[in-house]
Amino acid sequence: METLHHSEPMHIMRLAEWTGWIAPREKRESLTYKLRTLFGGVKTNGSPQIKRLEKDGSILGYRAVVNPSLLDLGQVMFVQVALRDTSKETRDSFTRAVHAIGEIETCHMITGDFHYMLTIRTRSVDAFQGLLTEQIAQLPAVARTTTIIAMKTIKTR
């Protein structure tokens, strides 16, 4: 285990990210336990340090980690999207649509031949096909798309 410094909130945050605030399968590896061992006596849930990080927006929230295939989200696809034009109105209408489509996990505006890079999670290639042709390609702002199929996930953080 790396040595960590009490005074640096970034390390506490990183640790919170690594361990979660409770790991149900290994109770002893819970964040409370780890923080106590590593920082000597720091408590987590409700500790002033963690509360401060939650309050100032350093910790944005807490999520359950679930195997995506259990929720029919096993197939990852990357879609690069070129818009008709990049006026503010066009971009805004595209962005609104992105937020409304639950299958779109991430969206970044990118440099290169396309304007946006989407990460999409669906149950299957078929389900993705439906989403692409019936929803994404239909958006008025979208001029063209190209899809990259993920065959295997090596790492996600």
Binding site: G20, A23, S58, I59, Y62
Partner: peptide, 18 residues
């Protein structure tokens, strides 16, 4: 949790602050 459908929980950190 016990049957491993929930693998654990994690904090989501602000990338800019990290």
């Amino acid at each position: 949790e016990a049957e491993g459908f929930i693998l654990g929980y994690r904090a989501v950190l602000d990338p800019a602050k990290m």
